[in-house]
């Protein structure tokens, strides 16, 4: 698709000119080489992207518009029937709502908490390095393991949360922490937040460390308080890091599969499904690969809109702020 375009001019001149380069006497060849050189450098990544990213995505678009048998055979264009079926299904609006709640809740809460944590870790204190290492742990652990552990913690029958509270004498009998689908979904969101915080923290921390301390010194001399410094110096200067982490998180969280799949598989009755778990079930449990691809394409379009807003915003401001 679009990423492929620069590759075309790059291919033909590549071999010819790169070998001649050391013996280029005339300036026009040199100029041509200069023009072509960047494309040569990016050609390998473009080719890799074309093979491993663009081709599968193209395939999903193709599947979404075709009649696909349960055995995975394509039986031709079916007039967007996959899309109409998906959009008509009563489960889809529920799943879309869940996806939006899931993405917004996880991204916003983890960004706020991650930002606060970054501010704390940016202070000088004993054991700061250890504290920073500990913050990485949730990020460094596989999501499936994380989700299994959370499931184990909140389990009514043998969960550690109940055991702990009973040991402290705070409760006398095991509490069912997931009495309804909403409660289960809230726990999944909590798990999502927990694993997302480290990413935000480290994005913000890198921004914080690049702020020159002289700004703060000057502000202190002028009599600025903690919150004045936070809102007038820190926030504007880490804004670009925060924007990057937020946009990446929106895409990651929106597409996140393991937490929900491990904890509930979207059960009961799609109440905890997001688009990704829903399309997985459609494809591999119901054998409806065409409809699953249509859901995938819808998710892609939603993300594309989010990312476009970000790109327009950053390009308008110029590259310096990126």
């Amino acid at each position: 698709m679009s990423t492929k375009t620069p590759a075309a001019p790059a291919k033909a001149p590549t071999a010819k000119h790169s070998q001649k380069e050391p013996r280029l006497p005339n300036p026009s060849s040199k100029k041509l080489f200069r023009t072509v050189e960047p494309y040569i450098w990016i050609a390998p990544s473009i080719i890799l992207m074309a093979i491993f990213i663009v081709t599968p995505i193209f395939k999903v678009f193709q599947l979404s518009m075709s009649k696909v048998t349960r055995a995975g055979q394509l039986k031709g264009f079916n007039n967007f029937e996959n899309f109409t079926k998906v959009l008509k299904s009563p489960a889809f609006s529920l799943v879309l709502k869940n996806t939006i709640v899931w993405t917004i809740a996880v991204v916003i809460i983890s960004t706020v908490l991650g930002f606060i944590l970054a501010l704390i870790l940016n202070n000088k204190f004993h054991g700061r390095k250890i504290a920073r290492a500990i913050v990485v742990f949730p990020w460094a652990t596989t999501l499936v393991i994380q989700a299994s552990v959370w499931n184990f913690i909140i389990n009514k029958d043998y969960g550690t949360l109940n055991t702990l509270l009973m040991k402290f004498g705070l409760i006398s009998a095991p509490v069912n922490w997931t009495p309804n689908p909403t409660a289960y979904f809230a726990w999944e969101i909590a798990c999502g937040i927990f694993v997302t915080i480290p990413f935000v923290t480290f994005c913000v921390l890198s921004g914080l460390q690049s702020i020159d301390s002289s700004y703060y010194e000057a502000a202190t001399v002028d009599g600025a308080g903690y919150f004045q410094k936070l809102f007038n110096i820190t926030l504007p200067l880490v804004k670009s890091s925060l924007t990057v982490s937020t946009v990446l998180n929106i895409i990651y969280v929106f597409n996140s599969f393991p937490i929900i799949w491990t904890m509930t598989k979207g059960d009961p009755a799609n109440r905890t499904d997001t688009l990704v778990t829903y399309l997985y079930k459609l494809a591999f449990y119901n054998g409806k690969q065409g409809e699953a691809s249509a859901v995938s394409v819808i998710g892609f379009i939603i993300l594309l809109m989010c990312a476009s807003v970000y790109m327009v915003y950053t390009l308008r401001k110029g590259d310096d702020d990126l």
């Binding site: 992207m49 990213i53 599968p56 995505i57 597409n255 998710g299 892609f300």
Partner: peptide, 10 residues
């Protein structure tokens, strides 16, 4: 934006 979503979706 398309390139980014493609890459990250993958």
């Amino acid at each position: 934006a398309s390139a980014m979503v493609l890459a990250l979706a993958a």
